[in-house]
Each structure stands twice: as structure tokens, then as C-alpha cells.
């Protein structure tokens, strides 16, 4: 893999992002109604004042013009201002990004730690009852509605057992790590469930393919212990197909975060998204959707590049 390949992949992402922004902008701005309609009911805000605001926000321009104005300032690093709070979109998003990163980071880490051994065990004990059980489990994992699981967890761990706080980010005045983790553990587990299910399947199938290959048989013949063989030779190659699903998982995480944050009152960008939808806060919605899409595009590039790096057989000119 070369640097020029990386650059080319990144360059290819630019028209993609432009296309995404056109579609999103069109959907958001062509919908009936608008963010300033909330002032229509307010007798103390005169029609002239609304017109003034419309001009101030550039909402009086034709949509294509609005789009280019938006694009221009976006490229200059100005994401616009929230119509509800008047604060810069970027700072509104950054304020909420931390909790979401904590939540999804822990969920991903948790998924990695659990899925890896599950996949490996499944593959090495192929056809055993354990393998069948784990396969069924992963099927169940991708078939379980996130919101339902979230409700069941709340019912069990908060309502019935009283072990964990039902929702929220932290107890007020208690910013301790333990308190944070107590709030984090339930949403993170729920969010990781579907990822564990999908990853363990990919790692399993990757492992099965690799274990059948000649060089592994050779390694066996050389008398290494089973664990050593698995870890040293197989896992690295088994990871290759799994890496390609990073991008899909990124989308799963974003979607899961919207639901999980709603159910667990987690103050992340998923909640911000729901609030912005309620208030038709176009700049925030546009910013969040673009950020999410950018994340997916970036994850795709990383997946391709990692794929190339992990698999020495692949050469990109």
C-alpha cells in the first residue's frame, strides 16, 4: 500500500461528500414549514421582524443559493448558528459529542473484547454444541430490537433489582468515575449487543477459512501449541474480512446511539438530533447529518486502507 493510494481514496471521498450534502440539503430545505414558523403564533413578533430574521438567516433566498452559501461558509469552517439557541452549530455539536464518544467508545471496546474470543472459540470448535449455541446467539443479537432490549434492561436492573440508575449521564454533584460508569454501563451494553453479534460471526467465518489453509496445517505440523497457532497466524488473517464491516458498524452505532440516547436520556448527539428535529433547527440537523455521513465515509476509507495493510497479497498501484 502506498501513500498515493491513501490520498486517492481520500480524494474520492470529496465528490461523495458533496453529493451527500446536496441530497441532505434538499430534503431538509424542501420540506414544508420552516424554523421561523414558531414566531408566527407570537403576536409580539411582527411579520416584519420575521421577514428580518428570514433575511438574517438567508432563508429568503432560493434553495440552490442557500445551498451554495451554506457550502461556502462550511468550507470556511463556519457551520452556521443554531436557530433555537443562537449558538454556533459546531460548539453545540462538540458539547454533545463527548458523551456520545464515551458511550460508543465503551460499546465498541466491549464488543471487541467479547466478540473476538466468541468468534475464535466458535471457529476452533466448529460444529460443536458450543459453536451452534454461539451462532444462534449472534443471530438473536442482530434480530433484537435495540429499544426493546433497552427497556428490558431498565426493567431488570433499575426497576426490579435497583442496581443501576435507569437513565442520565451522571448524578448531580457526583462526577466521580464510578458514578459515570454506573450510568454508562447499561446503555453501552445495549449498544454493543448487535455489534458483538455481527463481529463474532465475521471473525468466526474468517477463522474457519484461515484454519483450512495450508500454512496453518504446516504450523500444526511444526508442533506449536494450538493457542499459539491461532493467535499468531490465523487471527491476523481472519481479521481481514471483519475489517471491511467497520463502515457498516459505524452506521449501526450512529443509528443505535439515537435510540439508546433517547431511552437512557444520554446527553449526546443522538438526543441533540431529536431536539433539533422537534424545533426544525435546520443548521443543527444539517451539521449532524453531515458529521454522521462524514464518519461513515471516513470509516470506509479506513476500512479499505486497513484491508490493504493487513493483507500483503493485495497491492494497490
Amino acid at each position: 500500500m502506498s501513500l498515493s493510494y491513501l490520498l486517492r481514496r481520500l480524494g474520492g471521498a470529496i465528490p461523495l461528500l458533496l453529493g451527500i450534502s446536496v441530497i441532505l440539503f434538499a430534503i431538509i430545505h424542501l420540506a414544508p414549514g420552516g424554523p421561523l414558523d414558531m414566531y408566527l403564533e407570537n403576536p409580539s413578533v411582527s411579520p416584519e421582524a420575521i421577514e428580518q430574521m428570514r433575511t438574517a438567516y438567508g432563508l429568503d433566498q432560493p434553495v440552490p443559493v442557500q445551498y451554495f452559501l451554506w457550502l461556502k461558509s462550511m468550507l470556511a469552517g463556519d457551520w452556521g448558528y443554531s436557530i433555537r439557541t443562537g449558538k454556533p452549530v459546531l460548539s453545540e455539536i462538540l458539547n454533545r459529542l463527548g458523551p456520545t464518544l464515551q458511550l460508543s467508545g465503551l460499546a465498541l471496546g466491549f464488543a471487541f473484547i467479547v466478540a473476538m474470543p466468541l468468534g475464535v472459540i466458535s471457529a476452533t470448535r466448529r460444529g460443536s454444541k458450543l459453536d451452534t449455541g454461539l451462532t444462534l446467539f449472534s443471530f438473536a443479537g442482530i434480530s433484537t430490537p435495540v429499544f426493546w432490549m433497552a427497556l428490558l434492561f431498565q426493567l431488570l436492573f433499575s426497576v426490579q433489582l435497583g442496581w443501576l440508575p435507569s437513565a442520565g449521564y451522571q448524578s448531580v454533584g457526583d462526577g466521580s468515575l464510578v458514578d459515570r460508569l454506573r450510568h454508562l454501563v447499561m446503555p453501552a451494553t445495549v449498544l454493543s449487543f448487535a455489534i458483538i453479534a455481527s463481529w463474532s460471526r465475521y471473525i468466526r467465518s474468517g477463522m474457519v477459512d484461515v484454519l483450512n489453509q495450508d500454512y496453518i496445517r504446516t504450523a500444526y505440523a511444526k508442533g506449536r501449541t494450538e493457542i499459539g497457532v491461532v493467535v499468531l497466524h490465523a487471527l491476523r488473517n481472519a481479521m481481514i474480512p471483519a475489517v471491511t464491516v467497520i463502515a457498516v458498524d459505524f452506521a449501526t452505532i450512529i443509528s443505535g446511539a439515537v435510540i439508546t440516547e433517547t431511552v437512557f436520556a444520554w446527553p449526546g448527539i443522538g438526543r441533540l438530533f431529536m431536539e433539533a428535529m422537534d424545533g426544525r433547527d435546520y443548521p443543527i440537523l444539517m451539521g449532524l447529518m453531515m458529521l454522521g455521513s462524514f464518519g461513515i465515509v471516513l470509516a470506509n476509507v479506513i476500512a479499505d486502507v486497513t484491508y490493504a495493510a493487513l493483507d500483503p497479497r493485495i497491492r494497490y498501484g
Binding site: 461523495l16 453529493g19 451527500i20 441530497i23 441532505l24 430534503i27 431538509i28 420540506a31 414544508p32 414549514g33 452506521a251 450512529i254 443509528s255 439515537v258 435510540i259 438530533f273 431529536m274 428535529m277 440537523l285 449532524l288 447529518m289 454522521g292 455521513s293 461513515i296 465515509v297 470506509n300
Partner: peptide, 20 residues
Amino acid sequence: TDIMLSIPPLPLVLLLSSLF
């Protein structure tokens, strides 16, 4: 197709449903 695959699906569905 790439563009559609790159937009987070659930937020997009939510957005369309809430706007329309």
C-alpha cells in the same frame, strides 16, 4: 448508491418521517 450508503440510515428515516 454510495451516497445513499453513506448517510446514516435511521437518522435519515427519522428526518424524512418527521418532516413529511
